Amino acid sequence: MTHVVFFLVPGVHVLDLAGPAQVFSTAAEFGHPYTLAYVAEQPQIPTAQGVPLVAALDWPELGPDDLIVVPGWRARTLAESPAVADASLRVLRDHHAGGGTVASVCAGAEVLGRAGLLDGRRCTTHHDVQDELALRHPRATVVRDVLFTADDRVITSAGIASGIDLALHLVATRHGPAAAARVARDMVVYARRNGHAQQSSAMFRHRSHLDDTVHRAQDIIDADFDRPLPLSALASAVGVSERTLTRLFGRATGLTPLRYQQTLRLERAQHLISQGTTVEAAARSVGFQDARMLRRLRTRTP
């Protein structure tokens, strides 16, 4: 069971907290082993939106697979941010030193900075306070105009709703892009990745549409992309004709169902090859009978 612990400070933004919490809660509903906890330095936390929150005062026992998230809060400047006790900062440092992951949303990066976890690492925060974060923590490298950054198990995200992107990235990293795409679809949000780079998986790139028939077809392909999937069976499974499915799929994604499946196979094979797998073994692993088709697809891809 993976603990996701949200460390709350007074004035916390509800969406900074609720967005990532919803991602991990939805992932848990789909069978991924997450349990959520909320810790603060006082039992009741006022939020920026006026909704009071109740939190535990004691931290659960944490291991390397667990995650601590610091949501942001309302303050005109980072210098005016709420005080955080040394004991809490020590928990963050010790968790990361023990192999765990720490993350922040929006102004929450300031707490990671106070804990020394931004030193020598890339990070980001809300655009209104990026310059101040850089001044307050000169050993950090503040990256502008991105949704989030990930550097040595320190994950930081930009303003407010970008916490959803951060959480989807972590779900994708741990459970694969298909799991993150399923969570995003259930939450009715776009499955996005870093703002400065192309989304690295077709399961993300081709999900930013609202056609439910195509999403259902993609769910099937995502789950079984390494197996033969005749167009007739795929169309029957989603309740339309082959011609209709091809038309809808092309309009929503710019690809045919077969080309989408091949793209997933190619990306998975490329990953395996980068990890040391031979081309032949990678080809078989993703469903090709031999390496010839994989080599042709790799040649076509820029």
Rank of each mutant, 00 (worst) to 15 (best):
L112M: 03
G31K: 05
F30L: 15
R300K: 07
T244P: 00
L231F: 00
R300Q: 11
T101C: 03
L229I: 15
E29Y: 06
D119E: 14
Y260E: 05
A281F: 13
S236G: 13
T77V: 08
V143Y: 00
A172D: 10
D131F: 00
V143N: 00
V54G: 07
T253N: 00
H175R: 12
A191H: 12
T141D: 10
S201P: 07
R298P: 01
V154N: 01
P46L: 07
L170V: 15
A181Q: 08
D16I: 13
E41M: 08
V102P: 10
P60N: 11
A37P: 02
F204S: 12
L133D: 05
E41I: 11
W59G: 05
A202S: 14
V12D: 04
A28T: 12
P33H: 06
D86Y: 07
V54Y: 01
A40N: 02
G31R: 01
Q218S: 09
T213N: 08
T278D: 12
H13I: 03
S200K: 01
F24N: 08
H32L: 15
S241L: 07
A197F: 14
V91L: 00
S274Q: 13
V286A: 07
V54W: 02
Y190T: 11
D86G: 15
L258R: 06
W73H: 09
L229G: 04
G100W: 09
Q22A: 14
A28P: 06
G239M: 10
A281R: 14
T2Q: 10
S162Q: 04
A48T: 14
F6M: 09
M187Y: 13
R205C: 05
L36T: 12
V286C: 04
A75I: 04
A40H: 06
P82V: 02
R136K: 03
V279P: 01
I68D: 07
A181V: 11
G50N: 11
